[in-house]
Design a protein around this nucleic acid. Structure first.
Lengths: 336, 336
DNA sequence: ATCATTAAGGCAAACGTTTGACTGGAATTT
DNA sequence: AAATTCCAGTCAAACGTTTGCCTTAATGAT
């Protein structure tokens, strides 16, 4: 059975002083005689007094809790983000209240309410891919709770963001492919309504354009399609493909599998670049070249920004863009 | 700026009733005329009233928060535990307050205090270190907060446990290797200060002993050493090795890589068994045989037990031991 | 017409803490 | 000696909610 903890009032009674005196003694505020203070501190020590954060929250309207909404925890990407966030919140004395959304809009909405009800001081959220509509987040903003969104920009939502430069990451990857001699580069595209996948798509196009290669719609395949593997095979049968740039590592894994089945030489005949640098990338054979997102850093920066907003009462939203880096492994040729 | 949320008192004022009436109307308790009730509910709706959980906690002495202490989140094992826990707590309307300990006793202690200070309804913890001093956990017990420990039993601590049998898991794995004809079995050992790795080490030794094989210190390699890959190669050069039993899948992956470089036939010449069944195990080639820990289940059961203790006010501790299972894939021979 | 019952809702305390305003007395200044 | 300052504390309200007890008025039974 949960025992009643000793309270400031209990201490006050035992010493025949008022709770205010005890509070001030313990917090070192107001003026209290050294003798009294010592007496109070000693008694608190003796009983192992611990302040009640809940009661504190009531009066201060501050919980030192940060809400975190992530789609799931089974992907390395989100774990690293979590680890990054935690490194900051721990240091600053905040606790993390976590919610998983399973990338379902419904659960995401519910999580927002739950966290708001819990009166968290701020919220960090990575919107799942399935929600093209982010109204539930505007509820957070309306209430005035600081919000930092990870990974995806949403034009309509006037809040802070920490994102990686998807355009640039994609551009760099495709530029590398071109530099290493590839000319017929397929892009595996993610859902259109997600800013990240759209930006990678744009980066792909821009890299082609800048190098005088024409963009061909036939060389773009939807990565989330049912017929994905078939589409890849068809494209390989129809065009003289020499490279793939995929929206995600998982798509890239599938492509490597297909190419191995077709006894294609990787990377001599066909190069492959993925996106995210999942740990798997290093373990498959050949090891996957990929665009590395600084997940830990993203979490860290997002937490830093959120706490800055909370503690310095900053009103205007800020956006921070982190750099990706191309990891050259075994599915790409050396560029000249 | 954080806006003040509408409170029960605000609603009460606007309708010239008392807060008690509003509270009862909203909770459907006490007797209130249908008209009044409707009026109150409508107004609450209009203003988007949301109850303040903090205030509720003050009077009920219940937070609907569960504290969670894990060493880290970058390993799949703990993520799965987290996912398992979350699946239960979400369903029962509890929130998770998470703390990472980095397997440091100091942080672990601090986390205990933090969670206690936050007045969580219960705590789930996976102890990270092997120190026999678990005073910080006994503090939780002393205060009467329900506690379920994961993964590791501590004799002195009279509380509930959900564990897997590392000794047994290791024993079974090594027994399998012996049954399939291996005699010179290398063990890749985890850090000494982690009890799980130590127990697996003991299981390895016991399996050898029981089968009349002598334990040889030279066949034990530290998995976390800088020179790990060199050590493996040296051992392979020096002894007629026919199997590896690794403390973790990641070590096993590295070994497979080394063996492939040496053009060793797996499993004909050398067998490999890992530990944990990381998702990667199925993606590498050959697919890794490994000891599967039911991580998701562990989390789930631990959460179930904790909530049972909390909600049914159960006093006596319970221990549940979950079975590991050997997953036979492509890095082990069939046993006779 | 009288008494008992009940429905509807008010009152106030409680949870643990903080904080602005106040007070009584001692110490200091003029 | 009177006026001023300062120290050490007290008082009470506030945060938002719940809940046991009480009051009022209406309803029903006799």
């Amino acid at each position: 059975m949960k025992k009643k903890k000793i309270s400031i009032t209990d201490l006050a009674k035992e010493l025949n002083v008022t709770p205010s005196t005890v509070s001030r003694a313990l917090n070192g505020l107001g003026s209290i005689s050294t003798k009294r203070k010592e007496q109070i501190v000693n008694l608190a020590q003796k009983y192992g007094y611990r302040p009640n954060h809940i009661a504190k929250s009531m009066v201060s309207n501050k919980t030192f809790n940060i809400g975190l909404i992530l789609p799931e925890f089974t992907h390395n990407y989100f774990n690293k983000i979590l680890a990054g966030i935690e490194s900051i919140t721990y240091q600053k004395g905040y606790q993390l209240l976590i919610c998983t959304s399973d990338a379902l809009k419904e659960k995401e909405e519910k999580s927002c309410l739950t966290l708001l009800d819990a009166r968290v001081d701020g919220i960090l959220a990575a919107a799942g891919n399935s929600s093209d509509n982010l109204d539930h987040f505007s509820k957070i903003i309306d209430y005035g709770t600081p919000l930092v969104l990870l990974d995806r920009i949403c034009e309509d939502l006037n809040t802070s963001y920490v994102i990686t430069d998807d355009f640039d990451g994609a551009f760099e990857a495709v530029q590398y492919l071109i530099d290493s001699g590839c000319r017929n580069i397929v892009h595996i595209k993610g859902p259109d309504y997600i800013s990240t996948s759209f930006n990678r798509f744009l980066g792909y196009q821009e890299a082609l354009r800048k190098n005088g290669l024409t963009y061909r719609e036939e060389l773009v395949i939807a990565g989330d399609s049912e017929s994905f593997v078939d589409d890849v095979n068809n494209t390989l049968n129809t065009f003289p493909i020499d490279a793939f740039f995929a929206f995600s590592d998982y798509n890239a894994f599938d492509i490597v599998k297909v190419l191995k089945q077709r006894h294609c030489k990787i990377p001599e005949e066909i190069s492959v670049i993925g996106y995210a640098d999942e740990p798997l990338a290093q373990y498959i054979s050949p090891q996957l070249s990929t665009v590395k997102q600084p997940a830990y850093e993203i979490g860290k920066r997002a937490a830093e920004i959120l706490l800055k907003i909370i503690e310095e009462n900053i009103e205007l939203p800020m956006t921070e863009q982190l750099k990706t880096s191309l990891v050259h492994r075994e599915t790409t040729k050396n560029s000249h």
